[in-house]
């Protein structure tokens, strides 16, 4: 099995889906000739032509609306928004159109598609190249949200997203685009959506995260282990609809839980998970669920370190649940 980084794995998944399904098309700003600013669509135009892989004018609402039209007619668009920070001009198309089309038409006009977009901080990108906007979209019923944590995951989850019959927002943790490496089979494989992954089993505290944060959680679990604390680490993978069974079972087992994300705390997806897990597992919990998240601020250029959750802070939250 070759070792790939996340960009290579995503690129490989796109090539495989282009090869298998002539209805798959990919486009976005700089996605065609250049192959994308992160080179995720590299080689697609060269191999499959400008009809299937093309540059979009700089217009995010155009990209999302155009994808809607392609999907209505039966193609399978895999659109790219260059940075998730720049997806907001497309908010109306995503929230009012893409999310609602199946429902408002009585099921006549579903729009299965994938919108891929790099997201997340930890890269000295400041306000507009660091955001983690996933929770905005969790509030719009009708869109699936998937976030991979490594190259193997990225390929399998992207192929499953392309196959899925619903619109999927696929957030790619750009911080680990090149640094995260894994053995990735060159053949086609899917990782089912809505299945969380128990990355490490443990008995005392459940630690939930996704994307680049998953690795910070693994480091935090190591720190905790050194102090004799046993942590179960869960990579959520699909944010909507999430795998409640795996979460419930883990929380029932450990009785303690910490949720970590980069996005600001207020109305971050941790709030939703915490509320739901409290409601369903109240009598099994030994302590209130803790959140370790980005601050309720914008993402500041000069304070990347101060902003980003790190293993020590996560360990602190873990101890809060143990010392309650």
């Amino acid at each position: 099995m070759p070792i790939m980084n996340m960009i290579e794995a995503i690129n490989n998944a796109l090539h495989l889906s282009f090869e298998r399904d002539p209805d798959v098309v990919a486009f976005g700003e700089d996605s065609g000739y250049y192959g994308g600013v992160f080179r995720a669509t590299k080689g697609l135009q060269e191999k499959y032509g400008t009809e299937r892989c093309f540059d979009a004018p700089i217009c995010e609402q155009g990209i999302a609306g155009f994808a809607f039209g392609l999907a209505l007619y039966g193609l399978k668009p895999v659109a790219e928004i260059q940075f998730s920070d720049y997806m907001y001009p497309a908010f109306d198309q995503i929230v009012n159109e893409i999310a609602k089309s199946r429902y408002r038409s009585g099921g006549q006009w579903p729009v299965p598609m994938v919108i891929r977009t790099p997201y997340g901080g930890g890269i000295n990108g400041g306000l507009y190249h660091s955001q983690s906007p996933e929770s905005f979209y969790t509030h719009a019923p009708g869109i699936k949200i998937v976030i991979p944590s490594d190259p193997y995951e990225a390929k399998g989850l992207l192929l499953a997203s392309i196959k899925d019959q619903n619109p999927v927002l696929f957030f790619e943790p750009k911080k680990i685009y090149r640094s995260s490496k894994a053995d990735v089979p060159t053949d086609y494989y899917e990782i089912p959506l809505s299945k969380a992954r128990i990355a490490k089993e443990g008995s005392q505290v459940t630690l939930i995260g996704w994307g680049a944060i998953h690795h910070v959680n693994m480091d935090a679990a190591k720190l905790a282990e050194k102090e004799g604390i046993s942590i179960e680490v869960i990579d959520l993978r699909t944010i909507i609809p999430y795998d409640i069974e795996t979460l419930d079972a883990s929380v029932k087992k450990t009785g303690r839980c910490v949720i970590v994300h980069e996005a600001p705390r207020t109305s971050g997806f941790g709030a939703e998970l915490s509320a739901t897990l409290h409601e369903r597992n109240m009598l099994h919990l030994h302590a209130p669920i803790q959140r370790m998240t980005g601050w309720d601020t914008h993402y500041p250029f000069s304070f990347d370190y101060e902003y980003y959750p790190n293993p020590k802070r996560i360990l602190w939250a873990i101890k809060q649940t143990l010392e309650f």
Partner: peptide, 22 residues
């Protein structure tokens, strides 16, 4: 220190501070 490089601006000089979204 809040923005990436190339995002200057100055209220005194009537230069509205740059924002990345195009």
């Amino acid at each position: 220190g809040r923005q990436m490089p190339m995002h200057w601006g100055s209220r005194n000089l009537n230069l509205v501070t740059i924002s990345s979204p195009l």
